[in-house]
């Protein structure tokens, strides 16, 4: 559904005609203005939005937002990618230079550079969430440039993963498990575990808890630890050593021992973006406003 007032009208008809009392809106653009406008009109209905950033006092109290720190899984994918790559040049095909995407690019790169500090990630922005021809073009031109592991953040990773397989290079997935699209070259992938997230919400709602009575937190965020994410099973090209490094990183992320954004981190223009000694935990608001690419990423936020 396009992000116009058709969204509002459709939700309105779910409430009016179908009698819905809790709405889950899952496209980023639905939040502002559509979900916010409706929440004012229907104070008794609860709105849960995926990806939005709930701000206390600014937004109505019957609105909640949920999202996961999928960049944790991208970090681990970067660890695996760095092990698999021989050229130490990785490629990231991204839709748009927005914070959620940049965070994935940076975490992937930081993960790779934790294994080999000389590793680089080339990023190509296609400008569109779904543009199969350009995604394939980007994948091919990166393969031509000697890049040997590809990953992506677009609506459907299918074309990127399949193109990588055809070009005989590796790929790591996104959103869901794409192993069957690339039986040779699929390394691992950053997957959402939404069924787990929604199951939690449903049991809370069934227990009579609501956003308004404080039974459900307004801002729900989570990573590996909270069951928001999982890794795709390792592919045949992943060495035992890489597997072990990945599992260690994942365990450290869960225990909190490993903080991805830990200073000093420079951006790719040499400017220090996170000062030495400073740690930004996953909940840090700065990370949801990221507008830089880390050292080792080739590309610019434009």
């Amino acid at each position: 559904m396009p992000e116009t007032n058709a969204v509002q009208e459709s939700i309105r008809s779910m409430i009016d005609l179908d009698g819905a009392t809790a709405i889950f809106a899952t496209s980023f653009g639905y939040f502002d203005p559509h979900v916010l406008a409706l929440a004012k009109d229907f104070p008794e209905v609860q709105f849960f939005h995926c990806g939005g950033l709930y701000q206390e006092g600014v937004h109505p109290e019957n609105v909640g937002s949920y999202f996961g720190y999928i960049d944790e899984a991208q970090y681990v994918a970067g660890v695996v990618a760095a092990h698999a790559s021989t050229s130490k040049r990785l490629g990231f095909i991204a839709a748009k230079p927005i914070p959620q995407v940049l965070r994935n690019v940076n975490s992937f790169t930081l993960g790779a550079r934790s294994i080999d500090p000389s590793a680089t990630t080339q990023v190509i922005f296609t400008g569109d969430w779904a543009d199969p021809v350009r995604e394939a073009e980007a994948a091919n031109s990166m393969a031509d440039q000697g890049i040997d592991v590809l990953t992506c953040h677009v609506d459907s990773p299918k074309v990127v993963i399949e193109t990588a397989e055809r070009r005989g290079i590796f790929a790591t997935g996104y959103h869901a498990n794409q192993a069957e699209l690339a039986p040779q070259g699929y390394l691992t992938g950053a997957e959402w575990d939404w069924s787990n997230v929604y199951k939690n919400y449903v049991s809370l709602l069934q227990g009579g808890k609501t956003l308004m009575n404080g039974g459900i937190p307004h801002l729900v965020r989570g990573g590996f630890k909270d069951g928001f994410l999982k890794l795709s099973p390792f592919g045949p090209a992943v060495s035992a050593q890489a597997q072990q490094a990945a599992e260690t990183a994942q365990a450290q992320l869960i225990s909190g021992e490993l903080v991805i954004y830990k200073g000093e981190i420079k951006d790719n223009k040499g400017k220090t973006v996170i000062a030495g000694g400073k740690e930004l935990g996953q909940t840090a608001i700065e990370l949801e406003q990221m507008n830089w690419l880390a050292e080792g990423v080739m590309g610019s936020v434009g």
Binding site: F28, G51, L53, K96, I98, P99, Q100, E288, Q289, N291
Partner: peptide
């Protein structure tokens, strides 16, 4: 708008 984060 620099504050329009995830939807330019």
């Amino acid at each position: 708008d620099p504050s329009s984060l995830n939807k330019p």
